Amino acid sequence: MSCSGFTCSKNCLCAINLLYVMVSMLMIGIAAWGKWFGLVSSFQVVGGIIGVGVFLFFVALAGLTGAIKHHQVLLFFYMIILFLVFVVQFAVSSACLAINKEQQNQLLEVGWNNSQTTQRDVEKSLNCCGFSHVDVNGTCPAACFLSHTKCDTCAAKIQEHAGEVLRFVGGISLFFSFTEILGVWLTYRYRNQKDPRANPSAFL
């Protein structure tokens, strides 16, 4: 059977959704691993990653079930949700790739001020204190502060890699956004194809 046929569309949809299932499980596993080993102590960060992973898992499960059973309702809602995810993800990935250093610094400072737990995690892992200045009269879990040696600000250390991280995240996100629009197109085509094993006169 040619790749434009029913079976090929079904297999492609199943493959895409299996990929999404694996990605979602990986996200959940990495977040749980980071929390378990104390790499990330912020419940907001861990909860956010796990939440996105669970959402992606259920979307992929709906798509996989709809593809296997050729279920029209499931495929319709899957197609709509996947398109909305594509729009959001494409916008975020484009922003990550287009953001300049000044905007990076503003976003980093906003994120820094939102969570003291995240501040402590960053200070400890990067061995730095404070965002833009070091408060010698304050507290800091960094090794340099505890040993009374000179500490760099966290802004300086974060900005060393922020651009690379944003480009990497933006590129990966952009890649997956194109797989999502491919999934939308495949779902639309698959919904309008007749199952050769079904009753030829049945309405699809």
Rank of each mutant, 00 (worst) to 15 (best):
G5N: 14
K10W: 12
L108M: 11
L56A: 14
S2D: 03
L56Q: 07
Q106T: 13
V88G: 01
F175D: 15
F168C: 11
L97I: 02
E180P: 08
G66E: 15
V45D: 02
S177Q: 05
N114C: 10
E164T: 10
S201D: 06
L174P: 04
N113W: 12
F6D: 07
S9R: 02
F76S: 01
E123Q: 06
S177D: 15
N199I: 03
M25W: 01
F131H: 07
Q119Y: 01
L84R: 11
I172D: 15
G53T: 00
L166G: 02
V122C: 09
S94W: 01
V165H: 01
W112D: 09
T187C: 02
K101T: 00
S173A: 07
E123R: 05
I50Q: 08
Q72P: 10
G66Q: 11
G170W: 00
Y190K: 01
K10Q: 11
S24W: 06
L146G: 14
S177E: 05
F175I: 11
S115I: 06
M27P: 08
G171N: 08
V88N: 01
A156Y: 09
Q44W: 06
V110L: 09
I16D: 00
C144T: 13
Q119E: 06
M22N: 12
A62F: 10
W185V: 03
A155Q: 15
A142C: 15
L82H: 05
I30L: 14
N127I: 12
H148C: 08
L56M: 06
A67M: 03
Q89F: 00
D195R: 11
A198K: 15
G183K: 01
I28S: 05
Q89V: 00
S94Q: 04
A62I: 07
G47A: 05
H133T: 05
S147D: 07
R120H: 09
D152Q: 03
